[in-house]
Amino acid sequence: MKRAWWAVFVGLALLAPAARAGTITLGGGVYGGMSFPVLQDDQGQGSLFGARLPVRLLPLLAVEPFYSTSALGDKTIEASPGFEVTREGSDVNTFGVNVMVPFGTKTLLYPYVGIGSASFQRNGQDESFTSYDVGLGLGFTVMPKFSLDVRGELQAASSGETSRKMFNVTLGASYSIFSTP
């Protein structure tokens, strides 16, 4: 609990100069795309949807709490000659926060890293992992306050010793809700 208060204190201290400079922008966005399992023999590719709240703190720094849900696809294997069995894909729910460095003005290029928690659920499986992601996004302001983006990221849900990895490709839309004066 003490650590959390320290984190809040440090966060407020970091935000103060940005707020004074009038650079904080808060937005809201939704996105969707595909999730491709990497090196996972027991999952197929599936759809992914999510929402996020991008907060631009400084010209070159933004943070973004997010939530995503994906339904990985079923996987069928031939267990013995002529006998195929199918394993349903996991439902993956992830929440976390990304830190990004946006370059550009109307067109933005932003590498980002993130951390969060991912839960995998299917028949016989209900596990939660620490989730890491690293990715690259490209954003376009199509009208004032409204932008579209395309992103590619590698997500790794780690058990500590191994991880379940997905390559996610998404298209998103964001709306700038307010800016400090």
Binding site: L60, V101, Y112, R164
Partner: peptide, 27 residues
């Protein structure tokens, strides 16, 4: 500093991840 910080953080995360990233699920 910021411009350098994120790539460095990403590299540090990748290094820390180590074998976590070079693992897979095999049937």
């Amino acid at each position: 500093t910021l411009r350098r910080a994120v790539p460095l953080l990403a590299l540090a995360a990748l290094a820390a991840a180590g074998c976590m990233l070079t693992s897979g699920q095999f049937v």
